[in-house]
Design a protein around this nucleic acid. Sequence first.
RNA 1: GCGCCUGUAGCUCAGGGGAUAGAGCAGCGGCCUUCUAAGCCGCGGGUCGGGGGUUCGACUCCCUCCAGGCGCGCCA
Length: 663
Amino acid sequence: MDDFSPERSFEEGVRRAARDALGVDPAAIPLTWPPSASHGDLATPLCFELARAARKPPRALAEALVARYEPAGGVARVEVAGGGYVNAFFDRDACLSRWLLGPPVPASPAGGPKTIVEHTNINPNKAAHIGHLRNAVLGDTLVRCLKRLGERVEVQNYIDDTGVQVADLVVGFRVLRNEEIADVLDRYSEERLHERGDRFDYVAWNLYAEVTRFFEEDSSRLSHRSDTLHAMERGDNPVADLAAHLARRMVRHHLATMERIGVRYDVLPRESDILAMRFWEDAFRQLREAGAVRRIEEGRNAGCWVMDLPGVEEGSGEDQKIIVRSNGTVTYVGKDIAYQLWKFGLLARDFRYEPFDWSPGPAIYEVWSTTRGPDASSRPAFGRGDRVYNVIDARQSYLQRVVAHGLRSLGHEREAGRSVHFSYEMVALTPAAVAALFPDHPLSDAERARPYLEMSGRRGLGVRADDLVDALIRRAADEVRKRNPGLDGARVQETARRIAVGALRYYMLRFSRNRVVAFDLDDALAFEGETGPYLQYSVVRARNILAKMEERLGESGTGGGLPPSAGFGTLEPGTADEHWNLALLLSRVPGVLRQAVDSLELSGVAKHAYVLAQAFNSFYHRYPVVQEPDERRRATRAALAHLYHDGMVRLLGTMGIEVPDRM
RNA sequence: GCGCCUGUAGCUCAGGGGAUAGAGCAGCGGCCUUCUAAGCCGCGGGUCGGGGGUUCGACUCCCUCCAGGCGCGCCA
């Protein structure tokens, strides 16, 4: 596949014409999409920009430019429009023929620079909720888009297995439930829980909320927490082993939940291993030697090591961050700096790795975990990224800034610049949703007046991820059975699963990232309108057309490209634009993906897919394909259906949405 | 107090300095003997939070004010 691109051809043509006709060499050719096909396929407002310096009206410049433009490479002609736009019209038949040959395969250099995406990062002490789903869907979609653009990507899911939250769960089992450690392992084994119709992460969900209340009722009980934390820190004792066990079991659940929606990871770095491998020692030494941290001798923070943040107003509270506490222990952000250094290969140490232990259940897929045991003899290389995306919600912006500053103050300017915080807003619940889902939860008047309420694991306020997925699957399965009587159970389930995942992932992607998602159950469960199933359905329709073309007419409808007799000229007068629009929108997909990744605004991908599906559904409704008597028209339309089908399957693939065989 | 984010149709949201500000939902009215109606077509609905500025041109950039959210821990 060569690099056929009318867009680039237009860009170069305009550049050449600008030089020849106007004597200017613009740094960049601004491109814009005309509002409708009748205006053209691509446009540049370049002449508006040049008008001032040239002291001539934009339209005159545009006319001069157009006169010298030499059409080539898929651009059929250009014309002046409006007050000075230069609009390009593509050679439609030539474009369609080339596009039918399939997309260029991006070269994926096996040893080239690697991009690391860290996402999900759920505390391993309770079930995943819909806020985690937004994180995972955004992260996974970013990964898929990067791969589609030809990048080598490593997916990391950081496991904070040493924190207070895990300790609290240990306290819950040992103190609140008054269980012996051996009994916890037995009575709360996956098997025993299953017999009772329960599951481990759901037990933990409730227990965690209970423990929070337990502490609130009597703060002296917090000694249980600190005792547990100390035991976990010491290691090699039954309490520490229990904590490790609980965390691992929870991670297993999180991985299983995410697997349901098509999200996987390459490696699970554990915080306990960051400590065990003494990453912090090396990072701290580097920070001290570079003078990036300093010890405070007096005042409130006496005895602490802090990092000063330049450009932040003094006294704002954000100008100085404690990295090492007065008792000598490192804070979360300190560990994060060490971890970030490791991701770029800037640490003198590495983890050791082993395949993740999926027991007591079967392995779902191969994923690596860091370990304190021996390093696997044969394994992929992890870390040493060229660029790092941290998918973390906007509430952590400050800490992410501290981490980037840490890199910068060590002289790693390049890495700090390539240390990207993929920030997004949280998923929250409306007061109405809280009242409906948690009837026992009292809401104050102030809370009721708020636009939304944060979910809270500590209060057990939240919609669990698997509950939502289950509800989506049930609803989808009902609909599938209704529409496809006689379809066997396994196929109903698989179809329903794909629809559910499509609905969920689209819902999580359709909002721009800086918008708080006030979760609405009815919207999330919708299958009509701007939803994932709408997109999937349009592809199923295209597939049906192609299948019937083979079945009834024995016409492949395309695989071999556009038949010579076919083309847009064969269509009824006045309908060509609408047909062409489908191909044109598909041709813009690579640009849309690039733009989405560069801006981290993945909602653009979702939106474009939706606009495409709308265009196809309109086409489908108005223009018969299989029923079309004119052979040339039939072939042209089948070619478009084929192009749409393949292009849309790939585009949905970048969002992790699979298309069912039927719906 | 300081910083970041948000404010567009009844509701939920798109909108790359550029052409007539668009979708979905909800409402109303049509379209299933055709390739699946999870669909299509139509109607109604807008001081783009207010005010200033930059620009040939501002929903978009800058300033300011208002309203709401988040952050600013020796928690993670």
